[in-house]
């Protein structure tokens, strides 16, 4: 058999192996996305029927209405806040995970960290209702301690959403940070210390900069999830919170304005795309500086 023929056969084989996943992606991701894109440019009549005419009316609506602009702003703000809190909280956890001297302890931490992912988001979020409700755990304890006279309203606001988000998304921040911590050669810390830097300085000057890739990866995941979820804000924030995913859900399921929902979806995708793109660019620059 000639070489080219062999190569051709090998290529064919890879394509055959790829076909099922390509088909799946095509039918369930790319096709719906294109349909959504087309849908977002349609007009609607006053009964919310989708018309066959095309215009930018839906996008104009999204980008001119103070309500939607506010919603976009608060969605991005909450996602950003969640991301920052997650990264800050994840760092010590990742550190513990990687630096525990004992393999058994490390395995235990891993199981503890990953096990919440085995239950559904709904269940994890419901737990926060139990904790934060008027007659929930926190209020009961505070009342019993006579620190407050009447229950605080802990649920149905942004804080509750952020708390629940952080808890749900923490593992997604811990794992990439742990990975990049684990990749740091131990003798870099030794080199820093023998040059006279104490533990804190070594952490700030060596360990922290070298985990930037892990932090960025974690941030990308957490930010995308936080900007795109609607179950968590719906359950602990209530349906009136200014969240773009909630508004999309309402437009599509309750108002039945499909084109507006589609335009809002794509707007959300655009903003998340910009943030992820900027983070990715920073990551690439940083890695280029370190590895060429």
């Amino acid at each position: 058999m000639t070489k080219t023929k062999k190569k051709y056969r090998r290529n064919m084989f890879s394509w055959i192996l790829l076909t099922p996943s390509l088909l799946f992606m095509g039918i369930f991701l790319i096709l719906p996305f294109l349909l959504l894109l087309i849908l977002s440019f349609h007009d609607v009549d006053k009964y919310m029927n989708t018309l066959s005419t095309f215009s930018l009316s839906q996008y104009i609506e999204v980008f001119t209405s103070p309500f939607y602009l506010g919603t976009i702003r608060s969605t991005l703000w909450v996602a950003l806040l969640t991301t920052v809190i997650c990264i800050v909280l994840a760092y010590p956890a990742a550190y513990l995970l990687v630096r525990s001297p004992n393999q058994g302890t490390r395995t235990m931490f891993y199981i503890l960290l990953v096990s919440p992912l085995l239950t559904s988001v709904v269940i994890r979020t419901f737990a926060w209702i139990v904790i934060l409700a008027q007659n929930g755990l926190v209020n009961e304890v505070l009342m019993k301690l006579h620190l407050i006279n009447q229950p605080l309203t802990l649920l149905w606001n942004m804080n509750a959403v952020i708390i629940a988000y952080v808890q749900v998304m923490l593992p997604f921040a811990v794992l990439p940070i742990a990975t990049s911590l684990g990749e740091i050669a131990p003798n870099l810390r030794q080199a820093s210390m023998i040059l006279g830097a104490g533990r804190l300085r070594t952490f700030v000057k060596v360990t922290l900069p070298l985990t930037i890739p892990g932090m960025i990866s974690g941030a990308v995941i957490v930010f995308s999830l936080a900007a795109g979820s609607y179950i968590t804000p719906l359950l602990v924030g209530g349906r009136l919170q200014p969240f773009l995913p909630l508004s999309i859900y309402q437009q599509v399921m309750q108002v039945s304005n499909l084109p507006l929902g589609a335009a809002m979806s794509l707007t959300l995708l655009l903003f998340v795309g910009i943030v992820v793109g900027v983070l990715g660019w920073i990551l690439k620059r940083w890695e280029g500086r370190m590895n060429g």
């Binding site: 003798n187 030794q190 080199a191 023998i194 900069p209 070298l210 370190m290």
Partner: peptide
């Protein structure tokens, strides 16, 4: 002063 086996230069 110490020189390590894989040099241990700070890559960043």
């Amino acid at each position: 002063g110490m020189v390590f086996q894989n040099y241990a230069l700070f890559p960043h």
